[in-house]
């Protein structure tokens, strides 16, 4: 127990230390806030301009979550298809790899062309950013399902759907959650890219405008918000993951609670 507390204290201290070091170095070398604002300046900006930043943060969060949601739904369906059918695997995998190699910035103008500037292209960009890791992981998880476990179901004359539901999907959950943590952060990247290019709302747009007027502390305030949202989402999924897939790491808390 004390070992755990010590580790937590140490890690927290190191993270705080990083920002303190940043602050001190800026002060020591007299770095202008137009080049690199100090953390304290960023915090002050966040505090004083909160009413102006807040709606943008909400917009970005909302857009990301919707895009992420669609991404999860489509990602799971595609992953299940690819993981359970050889033909789908052969067809979809090269296409997916090719598609994910396209820089998403290049896709945003196309979305804008189709749907106009604003929320829709941002949602779509967030979605396509996060689909790839989810598809790959779900498909891998299904493919990695032990044939012995499937045989258990087959001797019981289980249908394909029952096998998928009782063995395939639970077996895939650790892979799925690992991909969610990556996908959640990618979804933010997607949203912000789209907002930067074609939107009048959202953190991406806020940072665009701020940097064009050399309001660097506000740009950094936007970055801080994005980082905080990303960390928040990551934590949420880690908690869900621990509850759902504790069996994979054989955690005692899972055994006691689950």
């Amino acid at each position: 127990m004390s070992e755990r507390v010590r580790r937590q204290v140490m890690s927290t201290a190191c993270i705080i230390g990083f920002f303190v070091l940043w602050e001190l170095l800026c002060l020591m070398f007299h770095v202008s806030d137009i080049v690199l604002p100090r953390p304290s300046q960023v915090l002050a900006t966040l505090w004083t301009r909160f009413p102006a930043i807040w709606p943008h943060a909400l917009q970005t969060l909302y857009t990301t979550m919707v895009g992420f949601g669609f991404g999860i739904a489509i990602g799971i369906l595609l992953g299940m298809l690819i993981g359970s059918s050889k033909l789908a695997y052969d067809v979809a995998y090269p296409m997916l790899v090719g598609f994910s190699s396209i820089p998403k910035v290049a896709v945003v103008p196309i979305f804008v062309l189709w749907f106009g500037a604003g929320t829709v292209p941002a949602i779509l960009t967030a979605m396509i950013m996060c689909i790839f890791p989810i598809v790959v992981n779900v498909a891998t998880g299904l493919a990695a399902t032990e044939p012995e476990l499937q045989d258990v179901m087959k001797t019981l004359r289980a249908t394909k759907l029952e096998i998928l539901w009782n063995v395939g999907l639970p077996r895939t959950m650790p892979y799925f959650f690992a991909s969610l943590k990556v996908a959640a952060t990618l979804a933010f990247v997607g949203t912000v890219i789209s907002e930067t290019v074609a939107s009048n709302r959202g953190i991406g747009n806020l940072m665009m405008i701020a940097s064009s007027s050399f309001d660097v502390p506000l740009v950094f305030a936007g970055l801080f918000i994005l980082a905080a949202l990303g960390v928040g989402l990551y934590i949420v999924f880690s908690l869900i993951e621990a509850r759902v897939t504790g069996w994979a790491v054989r955690s005692d808390s899972f055994a006691a609670g689950g």
Partner: peptide, 25 residues
Amino acid sequence: MAFQNPTLLPWLNIRDNVMLPLKIV
């Protein structure tokens, strides 16, 4: 059927593992 290895589903506790056939058959 019982196999050479226990082949229990690792995400289910023993009770739910044993109950599995009742869910399928």
